[in-house]
Amino acid sequence: MKRIIVPIDFSEQSEYALKTAARLAKKHDAEILVLHMLEIDNLALTASASRLGEQTVYFLKIAEQRFEKFLNKPYLKDVKITPIIKHFKVFSEVNDVAKEREADIIIMGSHGTSGVQEMFIGSNTEKVVRNSEIPVLVVKNNIPDINFEVIVLACDFSKESMAPYINTVKMFEKIVSKIYVVHVNLPNEKFRSSVELEKRAVDFFNKADGHLKRMEDVHYVADYTVDEGILSFSNKYGADLIVMPTHGRKGLAHFFQGSVSEDVVNHSTLPVLTLKI
C-alpha cells in the first residue's frame, strides 16, 4: 500500500477517516492524499468566465486556509501528507483522482442517511462507493485501532464474488483472528435449500482456495434483506469490519434495484470496506 486518498469536508466524520488513514499509513509507510472537492453549484457554472474564475480563486484560498488548520494535528506527525483541492461538481469524480494518482484505497467518513433523504439525495460517500474502482473504507466513528480482528465478508458464492473473496483473504488473513463468510438466504425467488447452499459453497471454495478449510467459517443467515442479515450477524458476532463486494450500479438499475453495499454503508455503525466486482 503506497497511497491512501481521504476526501474531506472538514467535518468530524472527515477527521475519523483521516485518523484511520494516519494509522494505516504509519503501518505501511504510505502517503495520504487529502482531497477536498469544491462542488461548484449550478449558479456559479452559468456565470461568466471571469466571474467563475474569481469565485474559484476565492474558494481555493478559503480551502487552503482550512486545510492548514485541519491538518495541524499531532496524529499526522511523521506521515507524508499531500493536500489536493479539486473544483469538480460531483463526488463521483473522486475515482478519477484515484486513478490519476494510482491510489490503493479510499477512506471516507460518513454520516449515513435513511428514508426519503437516502432515496432521493443520497450521500457523497454513496457516490464514491458506487463509482470507485479501488477499495473504499467507510468509517462513521473514531477507530482506536485498525487491527481488525473479526471480519464479516458477505458472499453469495457466485463466480463474480470470487475475486473479492480472494482479495479479502490476501488482505487480512495474516492480521485477523477470524474471517466469517456470510451468505444471506432470502424468502423469495433467490431462496436456496441447505443442500443447494452447501453444494455452491463447496464448489466456490474448491475453485477459490483449492481446499475446504474455510467451510468451517461459513454461516448461512435467513433474513428479509441482505443488509439486515449482514448487519444482524455482524453485531451478534462482534465484528470489527464488514467487507461488501459491490457492482456499483448506476442510473435506473441503481434506483429500482438499489445497492446492497450502499445500504450496508448507510446503516452500519461498523467500518465497511467495499470492493468492486
Rank of each mutant, 00 (worst) to 15 (best):
F120C: 14
F120V: 15
I121K: 09
I121L: 13
G122E: 09
G122M: 11
N124D: 07
N124Q: 07
E126K: 04
E126G: 05
K127D: 06
K127R: 09
V128W: 15
V128I: 14
V129D: 03
V129P: 08
N131M: 14
N131R: 14
S132L: 10
E133M: 07
E133A: 09
E133I: 06
I134H: 12
I134Y: 11
P135C: 09
P135D: 12
V136K: 01
V136W: 00
V136M: 04
L137D: 00
L137W: 03
V138P: 06
V139D: 08
V139A: 10
K140L: 12
K140T: 15
P144A: 03
P144N: 02
P144D: 00
D145P: 06
I146K: 05
I146S: 07
I146W: 04
N147G: 13
F148R: 04
V150G: 14
L153F: 09
C155T: 09
D156K: 03
D156G: 03
F157T: 12
S158A: 00
S158L: 02
K159R: 05
E160V: 13
P164N: 09
P164C: 11
Y165T: 15
Y165D: 11
I166P: 11
I166Q: 12
N167Q: 04
N167W: 04
N167R: 05
N167I: 06
T168W: 01
T168R: 00
T168I: 02
M171Y: 02
M171H: 02
M171I: 01
E173L: 07
E173W: 10
I175K: 12
I175G: 11
V176S: 15
S177I: 15
K178I: 13
V181E: 14
V181M: 13
H183R: 08
N185E: 03
L186D: 01
E189R: 06
K190W: 02
K190M: 03
F191G: 09
F191W: 11
R192L: 14
S193H: 00
S193C: 03
S194V: 13
V195T: 09
V195W: 03
L197T: 13
E198M: 11
E198D: 13
K199G: 09
R200F: 15
A201H: 04
V202L: 06
D203I: 15
D203M: 15
F204D: 11
F204V: 10
K207D: 10
K207H: 08
D209S: 01
G210S: 07
L212S: 13
L212R: 12
K213D: 15
R214A: 09
E216H: 12
D217E: 08
D217L: 06
V218T: 02
H219P: 08
H219W: 09
H219C: 10
Y220R: 12
V221D: 01
A222Y: 01
A222R: 00
A222W: 02
D223A: 01
D223H: 02
T225L: 00
V226Q: 01
V226S: 01
V226M: 03
G229A: 01
L231W: 03
S232V: 02
S232L: 00
S232D: 04
S232N: 05
S234A: 09
S234D: 02
N235M: 07
N235P: 06
N235K: 10
K236S: 06
Y237S: 00
Y237W: 00
G238H: 04
G238P: 06
A239G: 02
A239N: 01
